[in-house]
Amino acid sequence: MGQFLDMRKRTLEITSVASAIIIWEIIARIINKKYILPSFTDVGAAFLKLVSGGELYRDIITSLNFFVIGMGVAIAVGIPLGVMMGWFKTIDKAIDPIIEMIRPIPPLAWIPFAILWFGLTKYAAGFVIFVGAVFPILVNTYTGFRNTPKVLVESGMVLGCIKNRDLIFRIALPAALPAIATGVRVGMGVGWMCVVAAEMFGVSTYGIGWKIWHWNDLHHMDLVLTYMLVLGFIALVIDRLFRYIVQEWWLKWQTGIVV
């Protein structure tokens, strides 16, 4: 029975996706203008061309490189800062107003300064991604720390865990891990969205985001759409991979779905 339902669910999913593709193909053929709406077959052909030429591979690596730089710094800054603000009230009071002023600024607004400070380098792109990713990580880490159950902290204290350092690393941090994982996951989502913008100003002649603009300028909408789909697909893979890693290794002690 369960397997039957599973099969039916799968069938439904496949039918749904297939229908969307067919409708897309039909509409594109009715319009019959590649520069307004390329068809599925156009995109498929473009995709195959990109793969066989090896170009797509290089674009993905370039974009991932920016992404890793931005995410790496966002994690390295966001988690420790969130920990400090979540644990020490004075640090929270001192830093929170500054954060609240900077946080609402959209990451893309930082592009001029990114170029000014880092030039047209991968670090400029990484910076924009960093700005997008750091706040969800910071805020979730902070909230996770704030929500550490009091009874766990007190249990630690009566068991001889008295120093702030021990309480942070042995109790509050593990208790906050699910929240931190959520923060990193949300941060990765925002960071990946920033990749397109970060590549827009030309830090490299490769990269998925750059290629979207590049092929747009040349009115190759089939290639634009191909890169868009690749962008979405990679985000999906990163997200699933992260979820898998977190749930299998990091948070095995948790019941139910955490992230």
């Binding site: 159950p149 009874v151 766990l152 007190e154 249990s155 630690g156 204290m157 009566v158 068991l159 001889g160 865990c161 008295i162 042995r170 109790i171 593990p174 208790a175 891990l177 948070l251 002690w253 948790q254």
Partner: peptide, 28 residues
């Protein structure tokens, strides 16, 4: 302050959920 001469069992469930039963006991 808290000290090793006094142990406490709380009303609420207070085990560290990220540690196994054995590791909860080895904590101190």
């Amino acid at each position: 302050g808290p000290g090793p001469d006094r142990g406490m069992v709380f009303q609420e469930y207070s085990l560290f959920p990220w540690r196994t039963v054995l590791k909860n006991i080895t904590f101190s």
